[in-house]
Computed example of a mutant assay.
Amino acid sequence: MNSSQRGLLVKHLSDSELDQAIAEAQKADETRLVRRLCYVKNLYAGDTRKEAGRRVGISRSTTRRWAHAWNDGGIEGLRPGFGGGRPPKPSQTQFDELCELLEEGQP
Results as ranks from 00 to 15, higher is better:
residue 85 G to Q: 04
residue 3 S to H: 01
residue 24 E to F: 01
residue 102 L to P: 00
residue 66 W to Y: 15
residue 20 Q to P: 03
residue 11 K to N: 10
residue 50 K to L: 12
residue 53 G to W: 01
residue 32 R to T: 04
residue 42 N to D: 11
residue 68 H to F: 07
residue 99 C to S: 08
residue 102 L to E: 04
residue 6 R to Q: 07
residue 9 L to A: 01
residue 103 E to K: 11
residue 50 K to H: 09
residue 43 L to Q: 13
residue 20 Q to C: 03
residue 54 R to Q: 09
residue 107 P to Q: 09
residue 68 H to A: 06
residue 66 W to D: 13
residue 78 L to P: 10
residue 90 P to H: 08
residue 40 V to S: 10
residue 18 L to P: 02
residue 58 I to L: 14
residue 41 K to P: 08
residue 69 A to G: 02
residue 37 L to D: 07
residue 22 I to P: 01
residue 62 T to Y: 13
residue 2 N to Q: 05
residue 72 D to L: 04
residue 6 R to T: 06
residue 11 K to T: 08
residue 24 E to R: 08
residue 62 T to W: 13
residue 17 E to P: 00
residue 16 S to T: 02
residue 102 L to M: 05
residue 58 I to E: 10
residue 19 D to Y: 04
residue 51 E to P: 10
residue 8 L to P: 08
residue 63 T to Y: 11
residue 9 L to I: 07
residue 9 L to S: 01
residue 61 S to T: 09
residue 93 T to S: 15
residue 45 A to D: 09
residue 47 D to P: 06
residue 34 V to C: 10
residue 93 T to V: 12
residue 33 L to Y: 14
residue 4 S to L: 03
residue 38 C to P: 03
residue 28 A to F: 05
residue 53 G to L: 06
residue 15 D to E: 11
residue 61 S to K: 04
residue 56 V to W: 03
residue 5 Q to D: 12
residue 61 S to P: 10
residue 102 L to A: 08
residue 57 G to L: 10
residue 74 G to Y: 01
residue 33 L to V: 02
residue 86 R to M: 04
residue 60 R to M: 09
residue 10 V to M: 00
residue 66 W to R: 04
residue 19 D to I: 06
residue 89 K to F: 09
residue 67 A to S: 15
residue 20 Q to T: 08
